[in-house]
């Protein structure tokens, strides 16, 4: 942790002691309970944990996109470049979302696209000066064949993989410095998962943007990430470079996670080997 302290001035995103406590049926649920989290420019960071570990809430709290739930406590600091997101006004947040700030893609692309609007229009909406060529360029960039045709389609007319690419295109429209991806491949078939991950890696390389991936899948982490945070019960129990964490887990829970998914371990080793040179 102390090693990050010294890097702080260079961090794109720096979250300190974030607490998000929700009020559910009269009880307080500590969804996120004092988490430190940071992303450097151009870095790919993973957040891994079981469902209910608070990893999605963490991401949503950071970009100030909480769903309509009763919040019992919300505290800590969230610095993004020079802005303090905790105290930022709606205008500042909107500007960050519209231009060079952050954006997010979600687990279930069908539910997160408006069913009554054509895809092209939904992408154009995220652009500051929406022109058709930009829309088509974005669709092309995320690897969709026949962008013309896709732009004229409704979400339900596309396959799951295509929808997720459309979501990515929407997220890219604002040229974000940081892209949050919340379980981006969970709802997809295995082969499509592969393609979407490849697309994300390609985009990371070509655009140089930072990506924060939230997943329960250690394989995804091993393949894409530089660093990883392991979350459990609202706390980040361990963090470090993927190679360090996977090879010498410090926390018993991390060790257990790795042991439980031997398949993932193999993939992780491959990933580690790839990352080594």
């Amino acid at each position: 942790m102390s090693s990050f302290q010294s890097q702080k001035p260079n961090m794109l995103l720096d979250v300190c002691n974030l607490k998000v406590h929700l009020a559910v049926d009269g009880k307080t649920v500590r969804a996120v309970d004092g988490v430190d989290f940071a992303v450097a420019p151009g870095e790919v960071v993973g957040i891994v944990g079981e469902s209910g570990s608070g990893k999605s809430t963490l991401a949503r709290a950071i970009i100030q996109l909480m769903p309509n739930v009763a919040i019992a406590e919300l505290s800590g600091t969230i610095r993004f470049n020079d802005a303090d997101l905790m105290t930022a006004s709606g205008t500042v947040l909107r500007r960050l979302r519209r231009q060079n700030g952050f954006s997010m893609i979600f687990q279930d692309p069908l539910g997160y696209l408006n069913p009554t609007q054509k895809v092209g229009r939904q992408i154009a909406e995220a652009l500051d000066n929406s022109d058709d060529n930009r829309v088509l360029a974005l669709l092309h960039e995320v690897g969709l064949p026949k962008p013309h045709q896709v732009a004229r389609s409704y979400p339900h007319e596309l396959s799951g993989g295509m929808r997720q690419r459309v979501m990515i295109a929407i997220a890219l429209a604002s040229e974000p410095a940081l892209l949050f991806a919340d379980e981006p491949t969970t709802s997809l078939d295995a082969t499509v998962q592969r393609q979407v991950l490849d697309t994300l890696r390609r985009l990371h390389k070509s655009r140089g943007m930072a990506i924060a991936i939230i997943t329960h899948d250690l394989g995804v982490i091993a393949e894409l990430c530089d660093r990883v945070y392991v979350m459990r019960g609202g706390k980040a129990v361990e963090s470090g470079t993927v190679v360090d964490v996977f090879e010498t887990p410090q926390h018993p829970y991390t060790a257990e996670l790795i042991r439980l998914s031997t398949r993932h371990l193999q993939v992780a080793q491959q990933g580690a080997q790839r990352a080594a040179p």
């Binding site: 970009i63 996109l65 769903p67 947040l93 909107r94 500007r95 960050l96 979302r97 519209r98 231009q99 700030g101 954006s103 997010m104 979600f106 279930d108 539910g111 997160y112 696209l113 408006n114 069913p115 939904q122 909406e125 995220a126 979501m167 929407i170 997220a171 429209a173 604002s174």
Partner: peptide, 10 residues
């Protein structure tokens, strides 16, 4: 979800 997307779009 698409309302969340719209908010994320700024």
């Amino acid at each position: 979800g698409y309302i969340m997307t719209a908010r994320a779009k700024g």
